[in-house]
């Protein structure tokens, strides 16, 4: 599909807005619908769209497999690390009250941190799964 002009230009216009929408869904998830899962999937969908139009090798130059592979455990570590931080600051595991000076703000930042962890894992996993399926030879 590399030679279809309309698709190429249209997708090129669309891609930054997809990433922007993913980030919006991620950071606005506290106030509207959305959160780490949805944002992660939308970000992965952006990579997939790029790979569909320009081919998987081109997509792998933009988002290398090594990065994607590191993202899968990194998200889980961010999530679990937030829990451990609560533990270190004198609370229970995954207790966000202790993260900042007052409990409600601590909760807000704790939720933000775990959503970030979820985002990293989900987008990394989805992209990695797509890469492995797409590169498989018949």
């Amino acid at each position: 599909m590399k030679h279809d002009l309309i698709l190429r230009v249209g997708v090129k216009l669309l891609l930054p807005f997809m990433l922007l929408f993913a980030l919006y869904v991620q950071f606005h998830g506290d106030f509207g619908p959305g959160g780490g899962f949805q944002a992660g999937v939308i970000a992965a969908a952006m990579v997939i769209l790029y790979a569909v139009i320009w081919g998987v090798p081109a997509a792998r130059r933009v988002v290398p497999m090594g990065l994607v592979e590191r993202m899968i455990p990194a998200g889980v570590l961010i999530y679990a690390g937030t829990g451990v931080m609560g533990l270190a600051l004198g609370g229970n595991y995954l207790d966000y009250f202790v993260l900042l000076h007052d409990p409600a703000h601590g909760q807000e930042w704790g939720i933000f941190a775990v959503e970030a962890g979820v985002f990293v894992t989900v987008s990394g996993t989805m992209t990695a799964i797509f890469y492995t399926f797409a590169e498989r030879e018949r």
Partner: peptide, 19 residues
């Protein structure tokens, strides 16, 4: 009041049921 997050789904997902 407890989490400063108006979206209850996010609050329950990430905080009350974080495990």
């Amino acid at each position: 009041e407890e989490t400063m997050v108006p979206n209850v789904v996010t609050a329950v997902l990430a905080s009350y049921r974080g495990y």
